[in-house]
Write a protein that binds this DNA or RNA. Structure first.
Length: 637
RNA sequence: GCUGCUGUGGCUCAGCUGGUAGAGCAGCGCACUCGUAAUGCGCAGGCCAGCGGUUCGAAUCCGCUCAGCAGCUCCA
């Protein structure tokens, strides 16, 4: 008998006797043996010490593989649980999975954890890791599992065990003095876990259900090397510096006051940025054949009942009364757009009709959900609704995809697509849903765009394509969405007159590119760390003089720039040049221009470009043309 | 909404175990007229989130409310 192992590169190794994944790694190279964290056998992730006794395709997992990281972090979470078990007797255990960037474990403990406990927990974890306990796997019967955890009064584990399918193989892993109900896989032993840090503590509902008890969740992260942990912590620091709430405050873009929780105020500087975004938006939509409308912020309740929003979202809507009649503040723009469509008759020749609206919507978000500009109670959707013939669906979807693609490319965002399918609270028949979902799929496939399926995450009236963009720190944000809708046209009984002179039902697309302008500004702020492209900058140029003597000279240049549409200002304060420059940099102003006697004599100006240092004296007129060009082209820094 | 934490001048923060507020920055004034990330001096600015309680006395202790932060839940 021999065992044939096929490796990812297509290479085949033949072994005479059963052997472990770890042995295979060792046979490939010493380095791989050292770095191996687990394996994949015929597509299944397994422990490194799993014995292979048959032919299989094998891949060795290291830290470079996502699955490898998951194994490492999952084992780390068991280490955390063991530390907590030792330090805080009486604690019951929930679940402890690996997540992106780390892991957590949920505890139900008589002790209330605080940050002060972190060093103690870390020290205990370090002690346990050094003991290099082996992760022992045991297959147990349902009864054994039940008996063990019931005896220990581990009611959460008992619940988990009870919910496992009757034919499921139940396994436990034990390292040191900690035994957990766990499917694995795990590291061979704890010694590889060299660098870890307890990050935070937070409440979390048992099994993610807000009806259940809230447990204490300890978040932590771990790495094979100390340097990697340091790097990760530095990245977090960087993200913290870029926090749009902090930068929004420092740069004077927006503020949120106690008087209006979740209702942001845009300050003059933020308003400039916002208007620039909206100008850009109007420009590209006008080119793409959209018309712009504005619909009322408050409309009769019956409209929302007709659309289905009342039934689905009334708890998150704001209401008021006018003369005994209920009105709702709009949480969405589509019913308004539909009324505009209905307002006149449409011929098939007029379709598609693309109606855009920068619509201010209000939604009652729970107080705990609010977060700067990212999650607010009123925001502006850069919305549009396309009414079209069924035959136009694919082309319109492609058109929208290309429009949104252009928006993200402009800011240098990468993105990926997700297709969200029928949710539980969907309206409409399965046939309609299938038709709509297939239309979206076909459009994506014809454009050869890769996408993931996001099962059950569609809107109640239709499936959607979501754009998830990645910022420069690698974080992802869901922004654009394209929703295909056969239902609203029916609910609102809208139609067009076809070639045959009869009434027909149009199909609708709902779509946004920015998503929420407020949120997009938040994302841009973090993406650019406040150093926006010049075209978006509230102040594009700041002029300063060495002494008061050159003030008239820079004022003249400032006027010239302003007359050409550049947002320039003079810092006329009687301060040293270093002081004035410092503030200019802190305000992330792209162009800092300095004039002393030399520049006045030569008719030049000294240029210091944000992030590029002192560029020396330049010709003023040429500089003006360059800046105008940069703004016009909407170049990135 | 839930769990935990926080709330002091425009901003960032100090204020030990309760004795009725302090700094830096920003602002204003004066002097200096200066070459690429903070010139010096002076002035002004706070019912310590709000309400109630304990106490001879509360920014400090307790309760409630509001707001914020980190998660959870939710996000058409």
């Amino acid at each position: 008998m021999s065992i044939q192992v096929t490796l990812p590169d297509g290479g085949v190794k033949v072994y005479a006797e059963p052997l472990s994944i770890s042995d295979i790694a060792g046979d490939i190279s010493r380095k791989l043996a050292k770095n191996a964290l687990g394996g994949v056998v015929d597509g299944k992730v397994v422990d490194l010490n799993t014995i292979l006794d048959r032919d299989a395709e094998v891949r060795i997992l290291t830290w470079d593989d996502d699955e490898g990281k998951m194994i490492f972090r999952h084992s780390s979470s068991h280490l955390l649980a063991e530390a907590v078990q030792n330090l805080y007797p009486g604690t019951k255990f929930g679940i402890g999975p690996a997540i992106k960037d780390g892991f957590y474990y949920d505890f139900d403990s008589p002790h209330t954890f605080t940050e002060d406990d972190f060093p103690k927990i870390e020290a205990e974890m370090a002690r346990l890791a050094k003991e290099n306990s082996v992760f022992e796997k045991n297959i147990v019967s349902r009864e054994e599992a039940l008996a063990y955890f019931r005896d220990k009064d581990e009611n959460y584990k008992v619940e988990l065990r009870n919910d496992l399918p009757a034919d499921a193989e139940i396994s436990t892993y034990k390292q040191g003095g900690f035994l957990d109900l766990c499917a694995g896989p795990h590291l061979p032993s704890t010694e590889k876990i060299k660098a870890f840090k307890v990050m935070s503590i937070a409440g979390a509902y048992w099994r993610g259900d807000e009806k259940n008890k809230m447990l204490q969740r300890i978040y932590a992260t771990s790495f094979p090397k100390k340097a990697q942990l340091e790097e990760y912590l530095n990245m977090l620091e960087e993200a913290k510096k870029r926090d749009h709430r902090k930068l929004g405050q420092e740069l004077g873009l927006f503020t949120i006051m106690e008087e209006g929780p979740g209702f942001p105020f845009f300050l003059p500087k933020g308003m400039i940025l916002r208007n620039e975004l909206e100008n850009y938006w109007r420009e590209i939509h006008q080119k793409a054949g959209y018309e712009e409308i504005k619909t009322p912020m408050m409309l009769n309740r019956s409209l929302w009942e007709q659309s289905g929003h009342w039934q689905n979202y009334k708890d998150n809507m704001y209401f008021t009364k006018i003369d005994e009649t209920d009105f709702a503040i709009k949480p969405m723009n589509c019913p308004g757009s539909i009324l505009v469509y209905k307002h006149s008759l449409h011929s098939y020749r007029d379709l598609p009709i693309r109606m855009g609206e920068l619509g201010l919507v209000h939604r009652h978000e729970k107080s705990g959900a609010l977060h700067g500009l990212m999650r607010v109670r009123c925001f502006t959707q850069d919305d549009a609704h396309i009414f079209m013939l069924p035959s136009q669906i694919k082309d319109e979807i492609k058109g929208v995809i290309s429009l949104i693609d252009g928006v993200y490319k402009l800011f240098g965002f990468d993105y990926h697509l997700e297709l969200s399918t029928k949710p539980e609270k969907a309206m409409g028949s399965d046939e309609i849903w299938e038709m709509a979902t297939n239309a979206l799929k076909e459009a994506l496939e014809e454009e050869s765009l890769p996408y993931q399926i996001n099962e059950g995450d569609g809107a109640f009236y239709g499936p959607k394509i979501d754009f998830h963009l990645t910022d420069c720190l690698g974080r992802t944000w869901q922004c654009g969405t394209i929703q295909l809708d056969f239902l609203m046209p029916e609910k609102f009984d809208i139609h067009y007159i076809g070639e045959d002179g009869e009434k027909h039902r149009p199909v609708m697309i709902h779509r946004v590119a920015f998503g929420s302008i407020e949120r997009f500004i938040g994302i841009l702020t973090e993406h650019f760390a406040g150093a926006f492209p010049t075209w978006l900058c509230p102040v594009q140029v700041r002029l300063m003089s060495i002494t008061d003597k050159q003030l008239p000279y820079i004022k003249e240049i400032c006027d010239k720039m302003r007359s050409r549409g550049i947002r320039a200002e003079v810092d006329a304060r009687n301060e040293k040049i270093g002081y004035k420059l410092r503030e200019s940099f802190q305000m992330k102003i792209p162009y800092s221009l300095v004039a002393g006697d030399k520049e006045v004599a030569d008719g030049t100006i000294s240029l210091r470009r944000l992030g590029k240092g002192d560029l020396g004296a330049v010709n003023v007129d040429q500089l003006i043309e360059d800046i105008i060009e940069e703004i016009k082209e909407r170049k990135n820094p």
